[in-house]
Amino acid sequence: MSDVIDLPPPPPLGRLAGAREIALFLDFDGTLVNLAHAPGAIDVPPDLGPRLRALGDRLGGRLALVSGRSLEDLGGHCPIDGIACAGSHGAARRDAAGVAIGDPALAIAPGALEALRSGARELGLMLEAKPHGAALHYRANPERAALAEALADEVAARFELAIKPGKGVVELTQTGADKGGAVRAFLALRPFAGALPVFVGDDVTDEDGMIACEEAGGFGILVGDRAPTAARYRLPDVPAVYEWLSL
């Protein structure tokens, strides 16, 4: 793991592409759009979908969005037709043609969701139910972080779920669902296979994707100043990501 202070900016994307074909894996919240107080409050550029498709075309189709949001939620904020995507922290995957990759993602047990809903109501937390998991949000009330984490720990232990901590949120998913698995699944398929993989993300859950890229000979790029990280390079914020991508 690297100390963020020592991380340099990445080389220009054009220079990387000149050395070897690049496969780009991009997080969404905190990377392509700024974080907001609630999941539905993000401000998405109206032409982001077409711009991402154009970037994917420049890369020969080797572009994938890898988000904690479900694919349905992601598509509701940004047109993702023609873009390979992994949602629900990598559990649900599809290629650029919309064809599913791997086994269908499983929903968490109804009892787990009910326990989270009851606990969130009692503790004053915001619960976001997802097709393949659930998220306890406390960004608007950071003093409730410990309460959210304790509730997540309790429910995860009872229902054998995985915990995904993030910025102002703690999520529960089926075990084995992570962004690293999504990266590996894409890298096994054309047009990603054999390319230099690069993961760009800002949050703790993006570390799995960065590690998977490093294992395949690539690297991660951290957005922001979180530490520790497996990233090799750093970009300070969302506008810097757009500049680096020429997006």
Rank of each mutant, 00 (worst) to 15 (best):
S2H: 15
V4S: 11
D6R: 12
P9S: 14
P9L: 12
P10S: 13
P11S: 02
P11G: 06
G14D: 13
A17H: 10
A19W: 09
R20L: 08
R20N: 04
A23K: 05
L24Y: 05
F25Q: 03
D29P: 11
T31L: 04
P39D: 00
P39G: 02
G40P: 00
I42M: 10
D43H: 14
D43S: 13
L48Y: 07
L48N: 04
G49C: 00
G49E: 00
R51E: 04
L52I: 04
L52S: 03
R53G: 06
L55W: 06
G56H: 05
D57K: 15
R58P: 07
L59H: 05
L59E: 01
G60D: 08
G61F: 07
L63R: 03
A64M: 08
A64D: 06
V66F: 03
S67H: 00
R69L: 02
S70W: 07
L71T: 10
D73L: 14
I83E: 02
A86P: 02
A86L: 07
G87V: 08
A91G: 12
A91T: 06
A92P: 04
R93D: 00
D95T: 05
D95W: 05
A97Q: 11
A97K: 14
G98Q: 06
G102N: 11
P104K: 03
A105E: 03
A105W: 01
L106Q: 15
P110H: 05
G111D: 14
L113F: 01
L113R: 15
A115P: 02
A115Q: 12
R117T: 14
S118T: 15
G119V: 11
A120L: 07
R121G: 12
L123W: 01
G124R: 06
L125F: 02
M126F: 14
L127V: 01
H132E: 08
H132Q: 11
G133Y: 08
H137P: 04
H137Y: 04
R139T: 13
R139N: 02
R139H: 11
N141L: 10
P142A: 01
E143Q: 14
R144E: 04
R144Q: 09
A145W: 00
L147F: 08
L147G: 10
L147Y: 01
E149V: 13
E149P: 01
L151C: 06
D153V: 02
A157R: 15
L161M: 03
A162F: 05
K164S: 09
P165Y: 07
G166H: 13
K167F: 04
E171I: 08
T173W: 01
K179H: 01
R184L: 15
L187C: 06
L187S: 00
R190N: 13
G194D: 08
A195F: 09
A195Y: 05
L196Y: 15
L196C: 09
F199S: 00
V200F: 02
V200L: 11
G201E: 03
G201W: 03
I211N: 00
E215K: 14
A216Q: 02
G217H: 04
G217D: 03
F219P: 10
F219M: 14
F219D: 05
I221A: 08
L222F: 01
A227F: 06
T229L: 05
R232L: 12
Y233F: 15
L235Y: 03
L235S: 03
D237W: 12
P239N: 09
A240V: 13
A240W: 12
A240I: 12
A240N: 06
V241E: 08
W244F: 13
S246K: 15
L247K: 05
